[in-house]
Design a protein around this nucleic acid. Structure first.
Length: 436
RNA sequence: GGCGGCAUAGCCAAGUGGGAAGGCAGUGGUCUGCAAAACCACUAUUCCCCGGUUCGAAUCCGGGUGCCGCCUCCA
């Protein structure tokens, strides 16, 4: 089954051609752990979770790396304010992130490198860039020389002069658009020894160092939020390509951002919905479903009705799943051979992972099965039409193994009445609580 | 200023040359002891506006309007 992927690098949808057939290597930018995760963090996590699950369902061996940025200005500042060790603070919020991911049924990545565990590799990376004249030392800082890399600006479609006009000239920089690879330590800041004095790495270098370390100099897919295109991914490409002579990732995938009341959701705007808060009032599967209602590349707006609708859709899905479970058990081995619905689902997923289209296939299938099963509990199992059996089997597989949306084994019915009450009552007060 | 995105029913949202998916909400019906669930029917002669190309456009081209993002930390 062919898969086409929209590549930010070329601004085109391209057939996914793997470096090594049957194997997919993916690197996705994870969060900076200085606060609780918000809904915006859940989007790339869920999107790439479903993508990797799908690739696995297609029979690919997937190596999925998602990093954790555990040293940066905001972490240092917050640790200072709270008079805590930056490691302790980062560890706390990493746990909070993991807890939210676990509740959302986001599968753990194969590797989750932390920046502070790879300082050595970053120093090594920077040294090599200096040796090749792509970087230079200025006092205790090291900067990447943007003009040394001819493709700079390719990903974000910018030119060095156009970028430069927006940068203030900093002391010690040769060019206004040059960016820091290594930052000289200020007093009382966490720091590591280096050939350039004690300091800490710049943000972008961690992804170059860790991705090359874990996935090699050239891997298949790099993902992240659309707001990372510039400067983060642009700089990452500059670093990696300068050193290895090729783009680190063949496909650059960027998920659209989550908006609320017309504004981008972000900590700095103070409008972020705390994931833990949301999870108190919405089933995690409803949140997953919500995040899949729009194509991953487009920006999406979060509203009360939209969240409510996701719950309603989940109810419809779960009612179906519970109703069909009996016949599934009775009909013996299901889920080995995939049927026509799976094919249609794959057709949708092959179009740059068109989740809404794929979900429409799912719900259409549900209606078809409901149509033949009528009101009887076990009509599906009893129905001589193998087609319905095949549909049910495919729907089960898709929900559980690809979408990551399945009822807990302990549940034996879907308490939809509870869900209805929830939607009316607690939403208003609890949903849009601001993240702390 | 530079670069980019979006505009489809009451709402959410697919569809990028030839049948306007799917979901939510609503109305009517079937079923049911009543409900619920489920199903059926109805709900966009038309896809922001104007022009063009074409036998044919939501879809391509030109122009316009509106909203938004990136260019500083950001998923």
């Amino acid at each position: 089954m062919g898969i086409h992927v929209y590549n930010t690098l070329t601004r085109k949808e391209e057939p996914l051609e793997l470096i090594s057939p049957g194997k997919v290597s993916i690197y996705v930018c994870g969060p900076t752990v200085y606060d609780d995760p918000h809904l915006g963090h859940a989007r790339p996590a869920v999107v790439f979770d479903v993508i990797t699950r799908y690739l696995k369902a297609q029979g690919h061996a997937v190596t999925y790396v998602r990093n954790l940025t555990d040293i940066d200005d905001k972490i240092i500042e917050k640790a200072r304010q709270q008079n805590r060790d930056f490691k302790t603070l980062g560890g706390h919020y990493a746990n909070r992130y993991h807890e939210a991911m676990r509740r959302l049924n986001v599968a753990a990545p194969d590797a989750e490198p932390k920046a502070t565990d790879h300082i050595l590799h970053m120093r090594d990376f920077i040294s090599k860039l200096i040796q090749r004249d792509h970087a230079y030392q200025s006092r205790g800082n090291v900067y990447f020389a943007v003009e040394s890399f001819k493709n700079y600006g390719r990903l974000s479609r910018r030119t060095v002069p156009s970028i430069s006009s927006n940068f203030s000239v900093e002391q010690g920089k040769r060019h206004p658009a040059d960016f820091a690879l290594w930052k000289e330590a200020k007093p009382e800041e966490p720091s590591w020894a280096s050939p350039w004095g004690s300091g800490r790495p710049g943000w972008h270098i961690e992804c170059s160092a860790m991705s090359s370390r874990l996935l090699g100099e050239n891997y298949d897919i790099h993902g992240g939020g659309a707001d990372l295109v510039f400067p983060h991914h642009e700089n990452e490409i500059a670093q990696s390509e300068s050193l290895f002579g090729k783009t680190p990732a063949n496909y650059w995938m960027h998920n659209g951002l989550v908006y609320i009341a017309g504004e981008k959701m972000s900590k700095s705007l103070g409008n972020a919905l705390n994931l833990h808060g949301l999870l108190e009032i919405h089933r995690p599967e409803a949140l997953r479903l919500f995040l899949l209602t729009k194509h991953y590349r487009h920006p999406m707006e979060v509203t009360h009705p939209a969240l409510h609708e996701a719950s309603a859709r989940l109810s419809k899905l779960y009612r179906f799943l519970f109703r069909s479970a009996w016949s599934d058990a009775e009909s013996g081995e299901l889920g080995i051979n995939r049927g026509a619905l799976w094919t249609r689902f794959c057709n949708a997923m092959g179009k740059d992972f068109n989740f809404p289209m794929a979900l429409s296939v799912l719900f259409e299938g549900i209606r078809q099965v409901n149509l033949v099963s009528g009101n009887s509990r076990d009509a599906v199992g009893a129905d001589p039409a193998c087609r319905a059996i095949s549909l049910v089997s495919d729907i089960f597989f898709i929900c559980r193994d690809v979408l990551g949306i399945a009822p807990e084994p302990s549940m034996d019915a879907w308490p939809y009445e509870t869900e209805t009450k929830l939607s009316d009552g607690k939403l208003q007060t609890a949903t849009f609580r601001r993240a702390s």
